[in-house]
Amino acid sequence: MEPIIEVKNVSYQYPLTDKLALDNVSCKFKQGKCYGIVGANAGGKTTLCNLIRGLVPHFYAGELKGDAFIFGKDVREWDEMKLSVKIGYVFQDPFAQISGVKQTVFEEIGIGLENLGIEHDAMIKKIIKIAGLLKIDYLFERNPMKLSGGQCQRVAFASVLVLDSDIIVIDEPTSQLDPEGSKEVFDIVKQLKENGKTVIIAEHKIDLLARYCDEIITMKEGKIIASGTTKEVLGNIALMEQGITVPQTVRLADKLKREGIVLPDIPLTREEAISLLKERGERHGN
């Protein structure tokens, strides 16, 4: 399968800064897969997301070296408006994404649809559907400027999801959410993937990424230090030395190994760990 996004040897520096935000980065993204981007803060995750979305170089000036191809076309040649429709982007700061011009959450979610000139009744149906998915229909009549962080985050997510873009880039969608809310967001990510969308998530919640992502890219100081399948990347305890957390189950397997208890596989999720430990227990006649 041909990649829909291809980044080749990209280096980028924001204007008026003296450090490379991206340093010779190369990666590919295929359709219908879910990618997790992990790494320390200021490691380049958001800049990579900005590049994929075309904000670098269209919105943020600065020096861009190397090439990035979105659907086979150089990002520099893409019309910024057309790219904004093709690639949805949910930003990190939920409060900053509220437009301030709509009086109800219902209308706030529909802004993108209005901008695209979508037919009236179709807009209403889409908003109801997406709000139901994100469980924010109870917020319809509320003022978007008076929401809590978690509510804001879901509304921002909804207002991008409603555009039905082929690729969705999400920058830390669960920072303000409780565990149940976080799981709901990732369940939606799973559904998007099942519908053939490509999802790219920058996140710190490693355990959730381990559960839902197909591939992981780890970044540090603007460089990609590891990339590959979720198992290949997050199953490697050595990442901890680079300041990147691995799933707790991986840490468990590693610690057990050092105590002389070797599991047949490295578990990425709680269920896998329980299953492996129970199997081992049965084999040893516990």
């Binding site: 707790q248 189950t249 468990l252 208890i261 709680r270 329980i274 129970k278």
Partner: peptide, 26 residues
């Protein structure tokens, strides 16, 4: 996470942290 794993695999002692879970499994 470790507490939930400990509960599911039948560790009787109270487990919260990694060390406690490993000790329980041993």
């Amino acid at each position: 996470e470790y507490s939930l794993i400990g509960k599911e695999i039948g560790i009787k002692e109270e487990v919260l942290a990694l060390e406690e879970l490993v000790a329980g499994i041993k």
